[in-house]
């Protein structure tokens, strides 16, 4: 029984570490890491977020008075919303339908 418990704990510990690493590598959350500043979080995740087709921008914003990460999209669609995380490095993510940005000459 002792052996079983010990091997279970080792396995559990290992899986937690692996989960932590893949979480951090996936980059959507860094609960396993030191708390990033919102600037660092934006820097770390903007490339990945903007690689999602339909995302046209990211920015640091305020959501109900708290620092948050804004993800600007051409059009809010259920498929797109599914691909955007609710939080990034523990900062809440607000998806805003900005439309596409154009140079404003005429």
């Amino acid at each position: 029984m002792k052996g079983f418990v010990a091997s279970g704990c080792v396995w559990l510990l290992a899986s937690a570490v692996v989960c932590g690493q893949s979480w951090a590598e996936a980059g959507w959350d860094a609960t396993a890491m030191r708390q990033r500043t919102i600037e660092e979080a934006l820097e770390a995740h903007t490339g990945r977020l903007m690689a999602i087709p339909g995302v046209v921008g990211t920015a640091q914003g305020l959501c109900e008075g708290k620092p948050c990460i804004k993800v600007l999209v051409a059009r809010k669609t259920p498929q797109l919303l599914k691909r955007i995380p609710a939080t990034v490095d523990s900062y809440s993510v607000a998806v805003e339908e900005s439309g596409e940005f154009r140079a404003f000459d005429r």
């Binding site: 903007t46 920015a59 940005f101 140079a103």
Partner: peptide, 13 residues
């Protein structure tokens, strides 16, 4: 001002 430190795609001609 609603966003700072923003990264955006902008369409030109």
């Amino acid at each position: 001002v609603t966003g700072v430190n923003a990264t955006v795609f902008v369409r030109y001609d």
